[in-house]
Design a protein around this nucleic acid. Structure first.
Lengths: 335, 335
DNA sequence: CTGTTAGCGCTTTCAA
DNA sequence: TTGAAAGCGCTAACAG
């Protein structure tokens, strides 16, 4: 008994239920109540026996909207991105949208490619963790956009993410309380990433204001695995308990943790702290102090913000643009 | 100057190019060569000035296929899953498909929900990392399916993943070489997961054959964070250098690493080894020995296998079902 | 409440 | 080579 080679359609259901296309359509739309109980009954049965599900493609075609949202992630292998994506997924489901996720692998060309793809599938809105500056193409498409974590020049869209100034302030306050006086700030190259730039700026300004002595170390693509010389040079002239390393994100923290290990520098006597919580930060002796981002909330709020633009809601969804981190103090900042 | 509120359509392009819908359609399909050079020229220009891109939804409607693949991931926060997903993405792009990824968060109900959604969007094929046993619904939909890592009963689909028997054998051989004689095998509850069962079975059979003394520890949902008592009981009666813990996957390795730390058990004297490579395994002193899975290849081959079913290719794409792991020997198995 | 009638944007015969 | 016409599965007026 060969299974039906082609999926059941609206017409099949209508026939079986002895009614018209419109009624079946209504049954699956928002006007179900306008059908008599008996008709609803018949349609429901017919649909069930045929295993019918409305074809979203066809639905989208007729002005109904695709109910699809698109998400661009700069680096899918970054746990932070995945955590945010998880929040986005949850929220999408709550609001009745489906989600296509594209990973750009930090490649602006790929970003353009995926943008075109998403447009082709008629996504109704876009959540973008940008790598390049794809402003042009975006504006042309006219699709509502929300930016995640990173700003894009000349694009007037809401940016949802960490409150970078607050995060830096919290880090500096903690490090000061623990008695550190001299800081090394480690970041990936900030040139094209607004978030990195914002954190760096705040660090420089605030560290000075708080009387820290400070240096910075920029990780370039090549030496992300071996920035150890920079660490060695920083640590060498300092007495234990006086100097600490502050990492601008998870990647920087990982790179520095490797260096501490490679150079056999003791954590704590030399402080280590990072923005972004990672699985191993708690595991490693004596534990790495971090500022955890509320990734789920960030994801949810990005969707909420987008849905506000998509639907004219009686009471707009509440959301925050700048989220507060949570301090997880551990042994790496106990001198 | 308000941007065009509605995206350009085939007709707009046809008008501007002074030709008919069909010709424009051909231009964007596989029959572009059948158009005269001059016509191609005009269409290309018109499309460019209008910023036109074909609407995939509409294309899919008319038998052309959606060019969409669906992927279900049991746990998006598991680095292994993400790594495989990355391989899947790459392959999809190579073959000209787009991908909708759904995360089931290990919830069978959500799995059903997403399956319905993917069907609604007319995905042409499915790559499934199953959590439940969604065989029924799947067979009904009649969509080609490839299984990732985990088997589903009564579903006759190819399973792509690690060669579990080989992995266990490699682990046992390594542990024997390092001098360990007594093993504790740690796994999440294997009831509903074929992979876990396969690894466990092989472990029991092969450990006996190789003359190991053996025990097993099953992690349940509740105590995944505190299986330390089990570890303590295992370690207590053994002399250093004789006993080792073998973890069936990344989650188990993480749980055990936490216990080693909490109980202050020295790694090496008590061995620790796991299937699945994780970022921190190298970082933690003295390093955790793992069997790394070729995640990219697994993802690619899953797509290749699916595409073979979707397209009648002159020469079917080559792919492997059972992949070999790579041993990363580190300090945790140096007694 | 329910059915009829047009399309949505595109592909695809079938002629020209 | 090119164009005209007939839908794909569904929604949305518009009548009954």
């Amino acid at each position: 008994m060969p299974s039906p080679p082609t999926r059941a359609t609206l017409i099949d259901v209508a026939k079986l239920a002895g009614t018209s296309k419109s009624s079946v359509s209504r049954f699956f739309g928002p006007e179900r109540d306008k059908l008599s109980q008996s008709l609803q009954q018949r349609v429901a049965e017919a649909a069930a026996t045929l295993g019918y599900h409305p074809n979203q493609m066809a639905r989208g075609l007729k002005g109904g909207g695709s109910r699809l949202l698109g998400m661009m992630v700069a680096d899918i292998r970054n746990p932070f991105s995945v955590a945010v994506m998880h929040g986005v997924e949850l929220a999408c489901r709550d609001f009745g949208y489906s989600l296509i996720v594209c990973n750009t692998d930090n490649d602006p060309a790929l970003e353009q490619h995926h943008l075109a793809t998403l447009a082709a599938y008629q996504v109704e809105g876009l959540i973008i963790n940008a790598v390049g500056q794809p402003g042009q193409a975006l504006l042309e498409s006219g699709v509502p956009v929300v930016l995640l974590d990173r700003d894009i020049h000349h694009l007037d869209a809401e940016v949802i993410g960490l409150d970078n100034a607050l995060a830096i302030d919290m880090a500096l306050t903690h490090l000061a309380q623990q008695g550190y006086r001299s800081l090394l700030y480690v970041s990936e190259a900030p040139e094209h990433t607004s978030t990195r730039q914002a954190r760096l700026d705040r660090f420089q300004k605030q560290a000075d204001a708080m009387g820290f002595s400070r240096q910075t170390l920029m990780l370039s693509r090549q030496d992300i695995d071996t920035p150890c010389a920079g660490l060695a040079a920083f640590v060498e002239p300092h007495a234990p308990g006086h100097c600490a390393v502050l990492c601008a994100n998870g990647n920087a923290t990982l790179a520095m943790a490797r260096c501490f290990k490679q150079l056999d520098v003791a954590m704590g006597p030399v402080g280590l702290m990072g923005i972004d919580e990672l699985e191993w930060c708690e595991l490693m002796t004596p534990g790495v102090t971090t500022l955890a981002q509320p990734t789920d909330s960030i994801g949810r709020d990005a969707v909420a913000c987008l849905v506000n633009q998509l639907e004219r809601r009686a009471t707009p969804l509440a959301f925050h643009s700048r989220h507060s981190p949570r301090l997880l103090a551990r042994g790496s900042t106990a001198p």
